[in-house]
Write a protein that binds this DNA or RNA. Sequence first.
DNA 1: CGCATTAGTTACGATAGGAGAGTAAAGCGA
DNA 2: TCGCTTTACTCTCCTATCGTAACTAATGCG
Lengths: 125, 125
Amino acid sequence: MTHLPYDPYNRNCPTRKLLDRIGDRWTVLIVGALGEGPQRFGEIARRVDGVSQKMLTQTLRGLERDGLVRRTVFAEMPPRVEYALTPVGQTLREPLRALEDWAREYMADIEGARDVYDDAAVNVA
Amino acid sequence: MTHLPYDPYNRNCPTRKLLDRIGDRWTVLIVGALGEGPQRFGEIARRVDGVSQKMLTQTLRGLERDGLVRRTVFAEMPPRVEYALTPVGQTLREPLRALEDWAREYMADIEGARDVYDDAAVNVA
DNA sequence: CGCATTAGTTACGATAGGAGAGTAAAGCGA
DNA sequence: TCGCTTTACTCTCCTATCGTAACTAATGCG
């Protein structure tokens, strides 16, 4: 039998929560960083400027659970842990990069639109 | 002169916040809904199952301020307000639909990965 | 006169996120 | 031997955001 059609417009569909995860700010940046190759915890932290250790751990754990990231612990001291995209995780690179590229491309337009909107609000007030 | 390169990996870059907005759960679904044509407030609310009036208003206001959505008020009673994507808003449809499609395509894989992960955790515990 | 309709707004409790300090375990220099 | 360093977390506390649900304005209709 085929599965029910997944539909994020339905509140009970699991794709609804999945969208939350993959559209998440840190997920976009972390997957983007790992797209360049496997990296250690600290390397990702430095690459993704501003991410707290807590959120980095939390996001990586979620991605690992979802089978998008593989976590490898080396029994050394100080500890060494390497993170890498799985084959499924690789398939996320393109849609997320598209989002990143969109943000870069239209940022200026949007800042302009905000100025116009905010000026109009001031004039009315 | 060209503008500074926008880089969401830098915590102070405005694209960082922009990523938050466009990756947002409600934004993805609302832009998706409006991709089918202009719609009234209530129509969007019915299409995007589970969105509260508060979040719908808030998200639409943000999209309007960013110049991605145009809001048209008709002076009637009861009120009628129509929302439509602007040309810039249209350019968001493709990357967001790619996200939606990805979620639909890989949902089953991910649910499988979660089962494996959670079973392993139980065995260790 | 009172109820229905539409597009909101407001108040409030729950939850998620950020900041910052604390932890384990081994290496290494004084 | 003491204690400082490194790495990958974990914990606590505080604030911001989100969801729920009730309330509102303004008109038509029975």
